[in-house]
Design a protein around this nucleic acid. Structure first.
Lengths: 195, 195
DNA sequence: TCACAATGTGACTACCTGGTCATATGACGA
DNA sequence: TCGTCATATGACCAGGTAGTCACATTGTGA
């Protein structure tokens, strides 16, 4: 959580610092991102940074919250009545939509997939909790086989969706094709002879 | 490719350097690994390293080749008559077998999944080529649906298998369960009502 | 024995990192 | 006008990185 000194700043300066963070965290994963680079981008002195934030985690969390607020209008929220499949595809479409206007935002998300720091892992775990719920509900609704391991399922999708975005996200058509192919595979299976 | 000066070294010294590389690359992914750390582990001066290798990529490739030679006896090679599924599970079992005697080797492989440097990406692409072949063959044999995107399939499995190893690889039973769950999902699908 | 080539060596350069802290500045109330 | 307090600032510290290079040592063949 940013310190009071940060909250008292002018909107312009807060925005400048936010933009600087977005720039850095979209170029390098959290673990590799540099505070020095952020202050350089923002044009603020080193000392000020530590007057505003405790550390890198602090500004990252602030940035994520701001981003969430920003894309609130673009991305559709979870639809709890829809199936897990629909929600995932919806989300993939959302990622593309975001990627069109804010490729930096989308890349920040995608970069989490190649970060194995404890901080990022915890963040992801929290973010996936909602999906786990939906999967469990779909099991009860008879849409998903009850013996399926929800954690494995969401993990497979999550890391694929973001990994793919990292490498082919710029080509939107191709990206959506790949994601849909992946989901179709998981949905219907790849074996030709159903037994 | 190591320089001649390296090849002329005593087996003992070569082994010491190899071990030092294994230690470093099993603790940090390629991008984060430090040459300084390797020479420290090996007990050789900085200047010597550059007399033996061109750079970090050079020693990494050497290490990978040596490792491949080393686990040749442990891991079973591709069985071209077996299905893709069997080959993947075989490979996962192989990873576990290797992990038992050489957890460092297994971790070096697993760390590739969180490395998005061009160097590692190329290495992985080359390594997956054989699997692509097997998938294509299974399509012709009628074991895999012909419309399946081979690249998506192998990518999903690859990143899942290594990602999972990175986080639960130490618990072998759990790890194998997760991998088998993942493969089963892909094989038969997760949808309850087949249509 | 001598000369020359191959190899060993670590101090050094240039550059990066996160974090601290003494000092400077400016605002605000008495 | 003065004192106090919040905030701004960048020099500085300790530690890390990759790569170079002048010099020392060793080996080898004449």
């Amino acid at each position: 959580m940013p310190k009071d000194t940060f909250n008292n700043l002018s909107e312009e300066k807060k925005k400048r610092i936010f933009n600087a963070a977005v720039q850095e965290f979209s170029e390098r994963r959290f673990s590799d991102a540099s505070i020095n680079q952020i202050i350089k981008n923002a044009g603020i002195p080193k000392g000020s940074f530590y007057q505003y934030f405790n550390d890198k985690e602090d500004i990252y969390l602030y940035m994520v919250e701001e981003m969430a607020r920003d894309i609130h209008g673009i991305i559709e929220p979870f639809n709890l009545d829809d199936s897990f499949f629909k929600n995932v595809i919806q989300r993939a479409r959302g990622t593309i939509k975001v990627g069109k206007t804010r490729p930096d935002y989308a890349r920040i998300g995608a970069l989490t997939v190649v970060d194995n720091s404890e901080f990022i892992l915890q963040l992801l775990k929290a973010g996936n909790a909602k999906y786990i719920e939906i999967i469990e509900r779909d099991k009860q609704r008879g849409l998903i086989k009850p013996e399926i391991d929800s954690e494995v399922l969401i993990k497979m999708i999550y890391i694929f969706v973001f990994n793919e975005y990292l490498y082919s996200g710029l080509d939107e058509t191709r990206y959506l094709e790949k994601v849909e192919a992946a989901i179709q595979m998981l949905k219907q299976g790849i074996a030709a002879n159903q037994d």
